[in-house]
Nucleic acid binder design. Structure first.
Lengths: 340, 340
DNA sequence: CTGTTAGCGCTTTCAA
DNA sequence: TTGAAAGCGCTAACAG
């Protein structure tokens, strides 16, 4: 009769069986008291509840996930955790998911599809019940894995064809709208500053170009495109570059408010009057934009609502329901302020 | 002879046993080939590797966590995900933890100890191998649970006695240093704007008061304290309130850069010259602060490094090692700019 | 309403 | 270097 060493256990933590033993029932009854209390008699329920409170029982999610073959978790991949745009989206998604008992596995892809692939594969090991992704530029492997696992997925921020589920806004239209606004204000030599150059920035750029073209204006007059991450400092720098390239520029559409704020600050340093000498427009309507002086004309995007609606749609899909619409366009709104 | 329905499984996903069957070995050998390849013969290893790649095997973390009684995950609780201060800390922690194979369970407590308690209890179910917490104002229940489970924990942002593990900076000293700077510049009617009023803000406030007292100045001349969350808009508003309360104020120490930026913007609107009529100082050195005009005097905090060092210390504790120091003071630095 | 049994997918222990 | 057996903590299925 050989004595085996006991295997490692979750360091003294009480289990369902411990509770069960104390109450004098079987563990499945305790499990029911927790998960489907209506199936357990009032008397046992209260007894069990008191022992649970007494012992300080903490269920083991890993065991539950293994037994039920679902994890009650959702992976959410966003390009950056240090950009309010995406933390707002995340807040909306988390509020919905947490309220429905899901945990979120948050991944920061750093705007890199390769990193997104790494994170996605890593999170797959946790068997998330669904995924929220940003945009549509996933690697082929991700697409293949998604298809193979038939895991519900909802894309955020951009729109696409009816064969994929997404919640976002038309970035092309938004870029077009801002360029049209500048044109309607009488500006004719409108430059563009683009950083990061992720798909959404590119769509805004194309919208801008198309508006200029429709107005019969040279379509790449003063474009500065730089793939490095957006920042206020980069905006400062890019204004210099643009003025060297197109000194006669009278308006500037920045692909986001970070760049635009940098342009505003640098304009003040260079004594360029905004909007008299140079109009400045941004994108996203960050907190600073309404308060900076001159206040910044920009496009407000419904970020929290995008996260909220995307998570809601994902919930439906995880429940096996078919959402009323596969594409939800939450739009954008032009905020005209002092800078134009 | 009754035939039972098969229980739900992870929807067709291959298991170790599937790989093992294909190769003609037992599943433990496949497990070894993955986790401790040096224990498996070269030949089997390559065979197994090719089948794994072929099938696209994805390990099941829940099963592994259950069997090993550890989750390879770390819970990280921060007050806010929409505040760069904490996403910077988070970035530092994640870089370390991910590099060592840990997943991070991110929780946003919204500056509420009660919400922190909820999140902590929820994440306990995942049996994290360690925890990173912000500050020291945890609820008694959290403290009790931590003690009971003897789970390694490292506190971030603040410092404490040698009986707890932490990485941060002395917030009192930092507040004191900024007030001293303003005094050294000759300002005498120095006001304070505080929002959120979390423990770190209060410590800065006490540091400020103590510096004023040491200088023999009335110590609550113009303090505006408001428990609502910090924002640029709140800074705008608070400047108005302060000027009503203390119109002769000549310098303003804002508990963070958000408020300070609001003050700068609003000063410009009100044609208050900074720093001639009113000096303005902030805290944290956000990206905008160096570029805004006038540029903002502030205290730079080593946020990324705090997260990095805290995670490193936690790793040591999770490995059962004793870190060289239980308290790591990463300091701060005064950035004197145009606004003072 | 409660219990028995079996099994989720993996890794530990022990044995060869 | 490989394998058999057992078990981690929980819940689905079936039976009473």
């Amino acid at each position: 009769m050989s004595i085996r060493k006991p295997r490692p256990t979750q360091s003294e933590r009480a289990t369902l069986a411990d509770i069960a033993a104390r109450v004098g029932v079987s563990s499945i009854t305790v499990s029911r008291a927790i998960n489907t209390p209506q199936l357990v008699s009032e008397e046992l329920r209260t007894q069990i509840a008191s022992v649970i409170a007494d012992i300080g029982y903490i269920p083991n999610r890993a065991a539950r996930a293994l037994a039920r073959a679902r994890s009650d978790s959702v992976a959410v991949l966003i390009p950056s955790l240090s950009n309010t745009v995406f933390t707002d989206v995340l807040a909306g998604a988390r509020d919905v998911l947490h309220a429905h008992g899901y945990r979120t596995l948050i991944g920061d892809t750093r705007y890199s599809p390769a990193e997104e692939e790494n994170l996605f594969r890593a999170y797959l090991e946790h068997s998330p019940d669904g995924v929220l992704l940003t945009g549509f530029d996933q690697t082929p492997l991700i697409r293949q894995l998604l298809e193979k696992s038939r895991m519900p997925v909802v894309h955020m921020m951009e729109l696409a064809g009816p064969d994929s589920y997404c919640v976002g806004l038309n970035q092309f239209d938004a870029g077009h709208a801002m360029a049209s606004h500048l044109l309607s204000r009488g500006y004719r030599r409108i430059g563009f500053l683009g950083a990061q150059l992720d798909p959404r920035v590119m769509q805004r750029l194309y919208g801008y170009r198309s508006a200029l073209q429709e107005a019969g204006l040279p379509f790449a007059a003063g474009e500065i495109l730089d793939a490095t991450p957006s920042s206020i400092g980069l905006g400062v720098d890019m204004l210099g570059r643009l003025l060297r390239q197109a000194p006669d520029c009278d308006a500037l559409f920045c692909c986001n408010d970070d760049l635009a704020l940098g342009v505003l600050f640098e304009s003040r340093r260079r004594d360029i009057r905004v909007p008299e000498q140079l109009a400045v427009a941004g994108f996203n309507d960050l907190a600073a934009s309404a308060w900076v002086s001159p206040s910044l004309t920009t496009i407000a995007t419904p970020r929290y609502n995008i996260g909220h609606a995307a998570a809601t749609m994902l919930l439906q899909r995880m429940r096996g329901e078919t959402p009323a619409a596969s594409n939800i366009d939450l739009g954008f709104s032009l905020r005209v302020r002092e800078s134009t």
